[in-house]
């Protein structure tokens, strides 16, 4: 957490030494850094560009050697074709509803629990908070097997319940993240409201939640990304094709028949598209969330 608070200080932008004269070392270093950054960027972008390129190829150019980077003609119809080769619309609706439910459950329950830990005093609070921190260290694989047994005894296998219901029970990491944020909201605000006879629920709803929009957005966006891309949970619990998510559907699309790469890449691109759009729209929240999770969880 210590590191996270230092992020994005405005100082970064302004501390260019304007008064000092440029020394040759610095010019050389900066040029070198810029060139290296361009090379690394190319290495990072290259798989993504290869994906887009393949998705737009006519089948005669997919296996061309040397590879063709800019297909001619550009086969935009590959996207529609790929989408129709499997019930992707069905998968898309499933994934959207599933993701929305999990995001809603996570934001609501974590926000409530975080308010309890940050703003209310009760016996055992600090001990329970340490327990919460400790549970963040537990590998998901440890609880996966007994949870599966529990959900199969409940008859929930083959439904979305095992994937959605737990999200309404405040996961440790996001509760922790929001609690840290709520601690920075001055107590005077809620104290004043309490003097006027407001209940804690009212304060949570009318004071804390509106003031913590950035933190809640970070939680929502991170949960969205994680749920949209989740694979192991859905493959474990969803055993009927009409229940498949996009991730599971994509994997079956690939194994069910010998699918051609241009359709596979086109479908993959479409599956990733919502996350990419959200990323570009809310980049700041992504970066903040990643910084915090990386400072805590590595």
């Amino acid at each position: 957490m210590r590191q996270a608070s230092k992020l994005e200080t405005p100082e970064t932008q302004t501390r260019l030494p304007k008064v000092r004269r440029w020394n040759p070392w610095q010019i050389l270093l900066r040029t070198l850094a810029f060139v290296l950054l361009c090379i690394i960027s190319a290495a990072i972008l290259f798989p993504a560009l290869w994906m887009i390129s393949t998705a737009l190829k006519p089948d005669t150019q997919v296996y061309a050697s040397p590879p063709i980077w800019i297909p001619d003609p550009l086969m935009w119809e590959n996207f529609a074709k790929a989408w129709s080769l499997a019930p992707f619309t069905r998968y898309f609706i499933n994934t959207s509803l599933f993701t929305l439910a999990v995001v809603f459950g996570t934001v609501l329950s974590c926000s409530l629990a975080a308010y309890g830990f940050a703003k209310l005093r009760f016996p055992g609070r600090d001990f329970l908070f340490v327990v919460l921190l400790a549970t963040m260290m537990i590998p998901g694989m440890v609880t996966m097997i007994p949870q599966f047994i529990l959900f199969s005894k409940l008859g929930w296998v083959g439904t979305y319940l095992p994937l959605v219901v737990p999200s309404f029970f405040a996961g440790a990491f996001f509760t922790f993240l929001l609690r840290q944020f709520y601690l920075t909201i001055p107590t005077e605000l809620s104290e004043a409201a309490k003097m006027d006879g407001a209940s804690d629920f009212w304060i949570w709803r009318r004071v804390i939640v509106p003031l913590s929009a950035p933190a809640l957005s970070t939680v929502a966006i991170f949960t969205f990304e994680g749920t949209w891309n989740s694979y192991v949970g859905p493959i474990l619990y969803l055993n009927k094709e009409e229940l498949y998510t996009l991730q599971v559907g994509l994997q079956f699309f690939r194994t069910a028949s010998e699918v051609q790469w241009q359709y596979l890449m086109a479908a993959s691109l479409l599956v990733m598209l919502p996350v990419i759009i959200i990323f570009f729209a809310f980049q700041r929240y992504f970066v903040e969330g990643a910084a915090i999770s990386s400072a805590v969880k590595g």
Binding site: I40, S41, I44, L45, P47, A48, W50, M51, T54, E225, W228, N229, S230, Y231, Q247, V248, L250, Q251, R254, W261, L264, M265, A267, S268, L269, V271, M272, V275, I276, F279, F280, Q283, F286, V287, A290
Partner: peptide
């Protein structure tokens, strides 16, 4: 933005891409 992109591009789609790469 570029360096951050891989953090977002996860899931089955990217794994299939790597198989192809």
């Amino acid at each position: 933005t570029i360096f951050f992109l891989p953090k977002v591009l996860t899931g089955v789609a990217v794994l299939l891409l790597w198989l192809w790469v």
